[in-house]
Computed example of a mutant assay.
Amino acid sequence: MSNYSHPLTPDEFRDIYSKVPRLTVEVVIRSPAGVLLTLRGIEPCRGLWHLPGGTVRFGEKLFDAVRRVAATELGIDVVAAHPLGYIEYPSHHENGLDSPVGIAFDVVDYTGVPHPGDGATAARWFTELPRAMHREQADFLRSHSTGVFIGRTASQPRR
């Protein structure tokens, strides 16, 4: 797993990502109980359910970013994950934020019990998407409903 400390100050982050797209990873975990979402406790998007995710740091491998984000936001150790697709976030740009593009990863093996971590006030399994959900992530999960959201339950924790 990567051992990166947060490399940018808030001002540096805003300055850089006001000029270039921001690469993120999104963590998709499924079980017979549904898909795991967390409730944002911080801005942006406070109060919305979303896929746990975060910025890929300079020089960080994508799988290492998935492991770091899952450990920080869910308290789990990802053993295996596979890319599902990408999510563009025009709502961020439209609201004067940044312009992220997320690569969603299907976590197929992990250890630990998921729970809300940094930036989240709750974590819950959903078999139907909640109304108060990040728009682009909801669209992504709907477009991948066969095998990703409803019906397929490959993700199981390793004990």
Rank of each mutant, 00 (worst) to 15 (best):
67 R>V: 10
80 A>G: 02
37 L>V: 10
39 L>E: 05
55 T>V: 13
80 A>E: 15
21 P>C: 09
13 F>E: 01
61 K>M: 13
50 H>L: 11
17 Y>G: 03
77 D>E: 14
83 P>Y: 02
14 R>S: 09
39 L>F: 02
62 L>H: 11
67 R>P: 01
61 K>A: 15
88 E>Y: 06
43 E>I: 00
19 K>P: 00
76 I>D: 03
13 F>G: 00
28 V>Q: 00
79 V>W: 09
14 R>G: 02
85 G>A: 07
13 F>I: 03
73 E>T: 10
31 S>N: 01
28 V>S: 02
67 R>S: 12
63 F>C: 10
22 R>E: 15
83 P>M: 09
12 E>A: 08
57 R>D: 12
96 G>V: 05
23 L>Y: 00
23 L>N: 15
81 A>V: 06
34 G>A: 02
25 V>M: 00
93 H>W: 10
69 V>S: 08
83 P>E: 12
27 V>A: 04
59 G>Q: 11
60 E>P: 03
94 E>D: 13
39 L>I: 04
55 T>D: 13
24 T>K: 01
43 E>A: 10
54 G>I: 05
82 H>F: 12
37 L>H: 04
91 S>W: 07
49 W>Y: 10
29 I>H: 02
91 S>H: 12
43 E>M: 08
30 R>F: 01
44 P>N: 11
63 F>K: 10
70 A>F: 00
69 V>L: 10
83 P>F: 04
44 P>H: 04
60 E>H: 09
61 K>Q: 13
74 L>R: 02
44 P>E: 07
81 A>Y: 01
22 R>M: 13
13 F>V: 07
38 T>E: 07
76 I>C: 08
59 G>S: 13
21 P>H: 03
23 L>T: 15
54 G>F: 04
14 R>D: 09
71 A>I: 07
61 K>C: 13
24 T>M: 06
32 P>S: 08
79 V>S: 15
36 L>E: 00
51 L>M: 11
75 G>Q: 06
28 V>D: 01
85 G>H: 02
60 E>C: 14
52 P>V: 08
56 V>E: 01
62 L>R: 11
95 N>W: 04
18 S>G: 07
56 V>N: 02
84 L>F: 03
41 G>M: 04
40 R>S: 12
26 E>A: 15
71 A>V: 07
69 V>I: 15
21 P>A: 08
70 A>E: 07
52 P>W: 04
42 I>V: 14
95 N>E: 15
56 V>G: 08
84 L>P: 02
19 K>F: 05
39 L>P: 14
82 H>G: 08
20 V>P: 15
89 Y>M: 09
65 A>T: 15
30 R>K: 02
40 R>H: 11
69 V>N: 08
65 A>Q: 03
41 G>Y: 02
92 H>C: 12
86 Y>W: 03
57 R>C: 14
61 K>Y: 08
74 L>E: 05
48 L>H: 05
70 A>M: 09
65 A>H: 06
39 L>Q: 07
92 H>Q: 12
40 R>E: 09
37 L>N: 07
92 H>S: 13
84 L>M: 10
83 P>T: 11
90 P>M: 12
93 H>I: 08
56 V>A: 03
63 F>I: 11
41 G>R: 04
20 V>G: 05
18 S>W: 00
67 R>M: 11
94 E>L: 15
50 H>C: 14
71 A>Q: 04
86 Y>P: 06
